[in-house]
Computed example of a mutant assay.
Amino acid sequence: MITVNAMGDNCPIPVIKTKKAMQALTGPETIEVLVDNEIAVQNVTKMAESSGGAVKSEKIADKEYKVTIQMNGAPETVSEGEETCMPDARDNTVVVINSDRMGSGNDELGKVLIKGFIFAITQLDTLPKTMLFYNGGATLTTEGSDSLEDLKSLEAQGVQILTCGTCLDYYGLKEKLVVGTVTNMYSIVETMAGAGKIIRP
């Protein structure tokens, strides 16, 4: 494990430090990058993925984020002099998820589809501003969910993850929330009303 401490560093320093660590690799290695803002997470993630890395990210605490990059070795091609500070990758889109499965028909297929849907969001060039989870969708942000890793990555990149508190209470999951924060119906309505676009799986 190689740790790159970029806490307090302004863009593009986190990207430059990470790129240097990647170029120095002599074999398979995991690089852990510590940063203090979502934009740095977005920029490091984009650079690492374009260099062939498998990337995970997570919000550890307020202004503390960890990006984990699994590399098979030094990247074959590393562009020089392109460490640009990309703008915030979020827009005013709200994703609304009200079930632990996608579509109707076969429930097991539906669960596979919703997992794929959430993963696909992590791959968008422009991320949503907020993701709302209510009714059966509330189970996706709690212990045992197959989508926790993807949701943590989205949260680390600044996507607001909000889960209905009434729904968590109903399913007995209030103490098992793993990612994001609890919200109420007023905030859900307000968020949807102010959205530039709403996406529903």
Rank of each mutant, 00 (worst) to 15 (best):
A24V: 01
P28S: 13
T30M: 10
I31C: 02
I31S: 03
V33E: 03
V33F: 04
L34V: 04
L34F: 09
L34K: 14
V35E: 09
D36I: 07
N37D: 15
N37I: 04
N37P: 02
E38G: 01
I39K: 09
I39E: 09
A40N: 12
Q42R: 03
Q42T: 04
V44Q: 01
V44A: 02
V44S: 03
K46F: 05
M47D: 08
M47G: 00
E49K: 14
G52Q: 04
G53P: 06
G53K: 01
A54W: 04
S57L: 06
E58V: 11
K59Q: 15
I60F: 05
I60W: 03
I60Q: 14
A61L: 11
D62R: 14
K63W: 05
K63A: 13
Y65L: 08
K66A: 11
V67S: 03
T68P: 08
T68Q: 09
I69L: 05
Q70H: 12
Q70N: 15
Q70W: 01
G73V: 05
P75Y: 01
E76L: 05
V78S: 02
S79F: 06
E80P: 00
E80Y: 00
G81M: 00
G81E: 00
C85M: 05
C85W: 03
D88P: 05
R90A: 09
N92M: 06
N92H: 10
T93V: 15
T93L: 11
V94F: 05
V96M: 11
I97K: 08
N98F: 10
N98E: 07
D100K: 10
D100R: 09
R101A: 14
G103P: 08
S104M: 14
G105W: 06
N106R: 08
N106G: 08
N106E: 11
E108V: 12
E108R: 11
L109I: 13
K111R: 15
